[in-house]
Design a protein around this nucleic acid. Structure first.
Lengths: 170, 170
DNA sequence: TGGACAGGCTAACGGTGTTAGCTTATGTTT
DNA sequence: AAACATAAGCTAACACCGTTAGCCTGTCCA
């Protein structure tokens, strides 16, 4: 039972990462598992419940990636970007969803931890930094920057701006 | 002919703003115009073409909102947020799409103008600022901040950080 | 008078998430 | 051992989606 659930989540993740969110259909997931779509509902109440599992995975791995980064605001931002560009579909799903309030206890806090640390525990700065990184990544993923634009200066400018804040008002 | 096109776009916009993107179906648009869905294809090649018109509207009105803001980085950011919260579905569509490259000449540049002006013409800073504002707005729209959290300090912190950059390296 | 064409229509295709209802195997209880 | 409960599969179907094919009717121009 629990094993089937994991198979289903694994199949969904594969489809998501391979071909994006709209390729992740219930029928597609079922086929990959070797059953028919309606049988999925013996294990999950609906598709959103499957996606919630993916959100948990994405948030967890994102947190791990950020925690593995060297200390410092710029490294944290780079890790953020690197994760998002490496696994764009998972990042989008994780990040862009209505955010169901049924996440495992402390997961959100864990994912937010590195940003908080990078800003010396200042919550408002941490949120601003997170928003900056998230915005940069989303705009890049959505192709909103001029094609071929070098985004490195923008990342550095932003990180420097926030960095200055942490040393300034200490 | 052109009139019908405008009716269709108007109907699509109404549906979008009233009930969100998934409420904006071709059949729903058609019903609002008083015709059947297949007839829409006499005026637009596909749904994406209708959405492109909405993107143009959204981008234009966004630009107007930003241009109407008082000069200064914080005012610009506030105008950005205000627009997005007032018309969340339009903002999402405008902003989150693959961004077709068939926009009217100069529209993108116009929308980006205010941010550029607020950062004294520094492109990298303007992009970083834009990303910050966009990230803040998207996280808020997606309910990613703790419910009831006061976001004002985060906006001020971010804007101050970028503001400091413009006076510093002058 | 005829022809072109714009702009409506219905019917239909293949896709989506999902539900109802049936079957079958497993395992537990009497 | 017999009976029943449950888990977990199945097919058929529903209502929706974007979209296409093909038909019909009115208007306008040669």
């Amino acid at each position: 039972m629990a094993e089937r659930r994991e198979q289903i989540v694994a199949a969904a993740l594969e489809l998501l990462e391979a071909d994006g969110r709209e390729a992740m259909s219930m029928r597609g997931i079922a086929e990959r598992v070797g059953i028919r779509a309606p049988s999925l509902y013996k294990h999950f109440p609906d598709k959103a419940a499957v996606e919630l599992e993916l959100t948990v995975i994405g948030l967890t791995e994102m947190a791990e990636a950020l925690e593995a980064a060297e200390p410092g605001l710029l490294s944290c931002a780079r890790a953020h970007r690197s994760f998002a560009l490496t696994r764009p579909h998972l990042y989008r799903l994780t990040t862009t969803d209505p955010l169901p309030r049924m996440l495992p206890e402390g997961l959100e806090a864990r994912a937010a931890g590195p940003a908080l640390r990078a800003t010396d525990g200042r919550a408002d700065l941490a949120r601003a930094l997170w928003a900056f990184a998230h915005g940069m990544v989303m705009l890049e993923l959505d192709g909103r920057f001029p094609t071929g634009a070098d985004l490195e200066p923008a990342w550095i400018a932003g990180c420097t701006a926030f960095q200055n804040m942490t040393v300034k008002e200490d």
